[in-house]
Amino acid sequence: MRSALFHRQHVSAPTLLPEIESSTGGAGAAAWMAAHRGEVLAVVAEHGAAVVTGLGLHSVSDVEAVLGQLGVSPVREAEGFAARTEHAYGVYSSAAWPPRQPMCMHHELSYAGQFPGLLLFACLRAPATGGTTALADAAAVLDALPSEIVERFEREGWLLTRAYHEEIGTSLTQAFGTTDTHAIDRHCRDMDIVAEWQPDGSLRTRQHRRAVVRYPGTGRRCWFNQIAFLNQWTMDLEVREFLIDEYGLDGLPFNTYYGNGDSVAADTVEQINKVYEAHAVRRPWQAGDLMLVDNIRTAHSREPYEGPRQVVVAMADPKRQASPAAQTRSAAT
Rank of each mutant, 00 (worst) to 15 (best):
V313E: 15
A331S: 12
F242Y: 14
T24R: 05
A50W: 08
V63Q: 05
V60P: 05
A31D: 13
L41A: 14
K274S: 14
A30Y: 10
V281C: 07
A4S: 15
F229H: 07
M33L: 13
G130C: 14
G25R: 13
G38K: 07
D192N: 12
A128T: 11
P308S: 14
E46R: 07
T15L: 09
L142M: 06
A332W: 11
H300E: 10
G80R: 00
H187W: 12
D267S: 10
L120N: 09
I149S: 02
V212H: 10
V293S: 03
G219E: 08
T15G: 14
E21Q: 08
L55I: 02
A139H: 06
R204G: 03
N260M: 08
N225W: 08
D317C: 09
E277H: 13
E277T: 08
H10P: 09
Q9Y: 12
D250V: 00
D185C: 01
D294Y: 07
A128Y: 05
P99D: 15
L249Y: 12
H187Q: 04
I296F: 05
T328K: 12
S12A: 13
A228M: 04
F242H: 15
P116V: 01
G261Y: 10
L243F: 03
A49C: 12
I227S: 03
I227W: 08
A136E: 14
A163W: 03
P304F: 02
R221Y: 15
W158I: 05
L55C: 04
P14L: 07
Q198D: 04
S171G: 09
G90S: 04
G307Y: 00
T218W: 11
E64M: 05
A4D: 15
A140I: 12
A88F: 12
S22E: 15
R155P: 05
G217H: 13
A144P: 10
G71E: 13
P199R: 07
V43Y: 13
T161M: 12
T132Q: 13
L203G: 02
V194W: 06
N225V: 05
A27K: 11
T333D: 15
V75M: 14
S110K: 00
S73N: 11
I149M: 01
A299N: 11
A287S: 06
A122T: 01
R2Q: 13
E64F: 06
A326P: 12
A134W: 09
A316R: 01
Q198K: 03
H279K: 05
T85R: 08
R329K: 07
A265I: 07
A122L: 08
N231T: 00
S301E: 14
D185V: 00
T181S: 13
G307L: 06
S263A: 12
H106M: 10
V312I: 10
I168W: 10
I184D: 01
Q232T: 00
M105D: 09
D267Y: 10
L249R: 03
A42C: 11
Q232E: 14
E241V: 00
V239D: 08
A316H: 07
Y89R: 09
V44N: 10
D192T: 07
Q321K: 06
E64A: 15
L142A: 03
G117Y: 03
A332G: 05
M315G: 05
C188N: 03
N273H: 06
E277F: 09
D200Q: 01
S330Q: 15
E148K: 02
R37Q: 05
R125W: 11
E151C: 02
F224T: 09
F242K: 13
P318F: 06
T181V: 04
R162V: 02
A139N: 02
V239N: 04
R37M: 02
